[in-house]
């Protein structure tokens, strides 16, 4: 690194030094992803179906074919709903938990650790567990608890409720992510701020609205960005629970894309779907980061 410590020019150092800190991470990431990124982009403009001998450049052909297929638009819609529901709900629950558990309450450590546990259950298992629990026929929740409450419909086989089911499983599995990030951010708000506010006579509500929330915004947005990216890419959980069904009611872009590439053997179009998913993630992120640059 081109940095020479010099005690005489602290301000110059301030301007120049960070590059040396940044470079290793950038180089490492670039080395890993340069080839895969180019390959993916290259693949997305190729006609390449594994069992067809002819492989050729097709320009935007894969994308045009995608945009003309109703399956794509339906998957996009499902992905959008899934994305919105899981990010917003896991944010709401996560924020509530983080605020509740940032204060000293009974057995706080144990409760926090318990709430984080679902994160460590691999999505495959989480998917199977919820599939079995929500099952209308032999599920403890879907077959016994809900019918006792008067809900007798089969959750997993109902087009709308199947989406609700995978959202429930996703929230179970991923709210802890939001919780952890918000908790960490919450605990770093200097206590002086609250002390000062209290001296000024602020109540709990004012404290929350004028101190806690504004200072949490960056963490909330970053949490939402990652929840959104992960929601767009969720595969195992959904595939295990519904296989994208009933019909295509829970077929997200990640399931559609995976099927296109690995069941339909259409590598070009599969890559095009992956590119579209990245664009969707970029749009969502830009939308969120706009709010970060106050």
């Amino acid at each position: 690194m081109a940095y020479h410590p010099s005690k005489r020019h602290p301000i110059r150092r301030l301007a120049r030094f960070p590059i040396g800190f940044l470079l290793p991470a950038v180089l490492v990431l670039a080395a890993i992803v340069l080839f895969p990124t180019l390959y993916l982009l290259w693949l997305s403009v190729r006609h390449w179906i594994v069992f067809q001998p002819q492989q050729y450049f097709t320009g935007l052909g894969n994308f045009i074919a995608l945009f003309r297929s109703s399956a794509f638009w339906e998957s996009l819609r499902v992905t959008g709903s899934y994305l919105l529901l899981t990010s917003l709900l896991s944010f709401a629950f996560g924020l509530g938990l983080a605020i509740s558990l940032s204060k000293a309450i009974f057995a706080r450590g144990v409760v926090r650790a318990l709430i984080i546990l679902p994160l460590l259950v691999p999505p495959v298992v989480a998917g199977f567990a919820w599939k079995f629990l929500l099952n209308r026929e032999i599920g403890l929740v879907g077959g016994y608890l809900f019918p006792a409450l008067g809900i007798t419909v089969s959750l997993l086989a109902h087009p709308t409720l199947a989406l609700v089911s995978i959202v429930i499983a996703d929230i179970w599995s991923k709210t802890s992510f939001m919780f952890l990030i918000l908790l960490a951010a919450l605990q770093s708000i200097p206590v002086e701020l609250y002390e000062a506010a209290r001296i000024d006579g602020a109540g709990a509500r004012q404290e929350f609205l004028y101190i806690t929330l504004p200072l949490l915004v960056p963490a909330i947005i970053i949490g939402l960005i990652f929840r959104a990216i992960d929601a767009i890419n969720t595969f195992d959980l959904i595939f295990v629970m519904t296989q994208g069904g009933p019909g295509t009611a829970t077929q997200t872009l990640s399931i559609f894309g995976w099927k296109t590439a690995f069941t339909y053997f259409d590598l070009g179009r599969g890559a095009a779907i992956a590119v579209v998913m990245m664009v969707l993630a970029v749009i969502t992120t830009l939308f969120l980061t706009k709010r970060l640059q106050r």
Partner: peptide
């Protein structure tokens, strides 16, 4: 069939 048959696989 059972009510959930539209998402049933061999496991179910």
């Amino acid at each position: 069939g059972p009510p959930g048959i539209a998402t049933h696989t061999w496991v179910d």
